[in-house]
Amino acid sequence: MDPIFLIASAVALASAVNMVTQRNPVYSAVFLLVGFLAVAVTFLSLSAPFLAAIHVVVYTGAIMVLFLFVIMLLNLKPEELGAEYPIETRAPIAVLCAAMFGMMSWAILSDPSLAIPAKAPNATWGSVEEVGLLLFNVYALPFELISLLIIVAMFGALVLAKKRLSNVEATS
């Protein structure tokens, strides 16, 4: 058992639990940041160094910044946060999610082909070169489509988030 994985997963799970239970979104975002980093460490322990790096860049660099930016933009006061569900509602949902976890665990543990060490087949496994070759040879078309998706999402975010021109004129 990889001790790095143990520590990382413990940190990730703890921060994840904290994230979903924090009332203030700023705290949640901070716990999510910790969780992302721990997941990046897990990637390293799974012999995926390139992914670990990309994960840090994309999630902590881009997505987290976006979240924090929006949180600051909204600048919610504590009384604006609104009510949360009472415990009578949250408990059944927790049970449901636990049941889902139990189901998945049972499926995972009952499959003997998964009870093998997580060992990379070669030293270059998951390196930039290997993943890059795969990405631009075999998966070139999905790659291009994903870039298209990102462009569309960018425009969509712009259109959604900007104030209406008439509103701007009316207020200015």
């Binding site: 569900y85 949902i93 449901l96 999610c97 049941a99 889902m100 189901m103 499926a107």
Partner: peptide, 19 residues
Amino acid sequence: SAATTSTLVGVIVVVLWLV
């Protein structure tokens, strides 16, 4: 929340059945 919860229930049932 209700819609998503019922979706999750549906997923669980379907997956359980498949398993």
